[in-house]
Design a protein around this nucleic acid. Structure first.
Lengths: 343, 343
DNA sequence: ATGAAAGCGCTAACAG
DNA sequence: CTGTTAGCGCTTTCAT
């Protein structure tokens, strides 16, 4: 098929020297005479010789490819992460293979396996919302595949991780609501199987505590494994139907924030004012014209860069060298629009 | 490094047969005795043998990988396309390598070259906004690399393409504005080097014509190669500053629509009503609470699926078989929110 | 029904 | 300084 590709042999034949000499000349090996080097380089240039990366991979058992398992590409945050990964990987000479789990555990297992079979040099993982069993990841890690988690990390595996400071972000967001005068703040939680969601709950609780507000477990609703607008709307309705209804909502995802916002407007309530909303997310909410929602913005691009960097560092470490797992914690940014500061 | 991976040789040694027999047994070759097959399969299973895909690639000069050149992953539309590509590719046993041009011509050239060097079996391309020279793509196509364009296609290369019916979408959107009573509709155009933007302009003009409205070239502003909010805002200001200012805006991108919307609100004008806006885009505008903008929604996921399908069909065609290039035209959907229908 | 050998493209030890 | 040889893991004639 692509048999028309120039190989080292072609150059050797043309110049009537051996393939090894060509190979050496091309890598500027000191043994080769300047004259030969020049000839080889010029011919290679002329024929537009491109080394066959597959042959290289087979020999070196290195593919210069990193695999990325991502829950949902369409999510603005995650696409931003990919962008960051690409940025660093590309600069370091690596290709990026993307596998999307679509928040499905089963799919995640298949993806990691497929990436491994594709002989990626290392793997970047953010777990699906469904994942509670870590065998598929543990087995890869045990086999020595360089692995770095980002955002949705697995606590029980001892490798490098890049996370957002969820506790702090959640604390700041809650504090912001309190400072705006809200007193009964509901929390639309995510699945507790993911550390980040537990930490956000903790940050929320701590902020209430520090400001002398009670923690009302009735105001803490979980949206479980799913992440859909409909559910968020239902939960919001539940909250609005309470006798002593909340005056603010802390949403753990953009979808949840959106669902809450829509529902509350249907009740004819004003945001902010009647109800305050903080959304832990970072899609384009921040750019909206009606910036009723304060957003905890997550540094996706930096997260991708950092994760790729840690992974490549590990991949390229000498065999005998021990790399200490490292956990990077990135700060969030609270994006407050002027119009949302009032009550 | 990964020398602990089981190979065919290991199985052969263990069973005291030759590697070729193992290979054949694994592929259920009719020559091999049932007994041997059983032994081999069981041992392979037990040792968790996984064929080395690189060795396979080297032999077959097929990588089962497709390369995707995409302008901007973060853009909702494009991330949706990737999702569609992944969906089909994965099901057909292909991996997906993503390269992001970031709307840069230079980067696009490097990306296509890098993908080619990575020996992808085929390539899916959507051109950057900057691209006006097609040599890098033509050369790949000439060399016989299966190639399919999606969304931002290159007219001068004769291969399969998947596009949105931009003319029709634009026509419908403009018609919609006209039917709402708007009469002076501005057009924020994209770079005419990309066919889609030219077609959208045509659709817009045709709709005006069909409804007996004049085409005012002063109302057609181009935002050139860039796609930033600031520029869109400036152009909108220009429009608003006109003595005989437009009463509606047709924006070619989400960013442009957003910029226009913000600017117009700054002027204290109501949308819709004072000014109507139609955005040719499909990010989450459609989900907003204040759905002032009518959106021409593009079928990203289907586009990805379709493109991947066409490409894989071509990749897997027999060497002698001639595949006729095919162009798929997907329909857009006009998403009209109730509140935007009034004037 | 099975094995031996060659080769995909490249590199690196080992000879000169 | 350069060539010969072997081998990465796999498949596939060609023998037997």
């Amino acid at each position: 098929m692509k048999s028309n590709q120039i190989t080292i042999k072609d150059i050797a034949r043309e110049l009537d020297i051996s393939p090894s000499t060509v190979s050496r000349a091309l890598k500027d090996h000191p043994d080769i005479s300047p004259k030969t080097k020049k000839q080889v380089r010029e011919l290679a240039e002329k024929l537009n010789y491109q080394p066959n990366s597959i042959a290289l991979s087979l020999r070196s058992s290195k593919t210069n490819t990193i695999g990325v398992v991502i829950p949902q590409i369409e999510h603005f945050f995650f696409s931003t992460v990919i962008s960051g990964i690409e940025d660093v990987a590309y600069a370091a000479g690596y290709s990026v293979i993307v596998a999307q789990s679509n928040e499905s555990y089963e799919r995640e297992v298949m993806d990691t396996q497929a990436l491994f079979n594709n002989r990626v040099d290392g793997i970047l993982v953010s777990m699906s919302r469904e994942t509670t069993d870590y065998k598929h990841l543990e087995s890869l890690h045990t086999r020595g595949i360089p692995m770095v988690f980002y955002d949705r990390v697995c606590d029980s595996i001892n490798c490098s991780k890049v996370v957002v400071d969820d506790f702090d972000g959640s604390y700041q967001a809650t504090k912001h609501l309190i400072e705006q005068g809200y007193k009964r703040i509901a929390h639309l939680a995510g699945p507790y199987s993911l550390t980040m969601f537990r930490q956000r709950l903790e940050g929320y609780k701590k902020a209430l505590e520090d400001h002398g507000l009670p923690i009302d477990e009735n105001l803490i609703l979980q949206e479980n494994a799913s992440n859909d607008e409909t559910l968020a709307k239902e939960l919001t309705k539940e909250l609005m139907a309470m006798k002593n209804r909340p005056d603010a909502i802390f949403a753990n995802t953009d979808i949840a924030a959106l669902g809450a916002m829509i529902t509350i407007k249907e009740y004819g309530l004003k945001i902010p004012g009647d109800i305050g909303i903080v959304g832990f997310s970072n899609w384009r909410f921040t750019a909206l014209t009606e910036p009723t929602i304060t957003t905890v913005s997550q540094p996706g691009f930096e997260m991708g860069q950092e994760a790729a960097h840690l992974l490549i560092r590990e991949i390229e470490a000498k065999k005998d060298q021990v790399i200490e797992p490292e956990t990077k914690i990135l700060k969030t940014e609270l994006v407050v629009r002027k119009s949302s500061v009032l009550k």
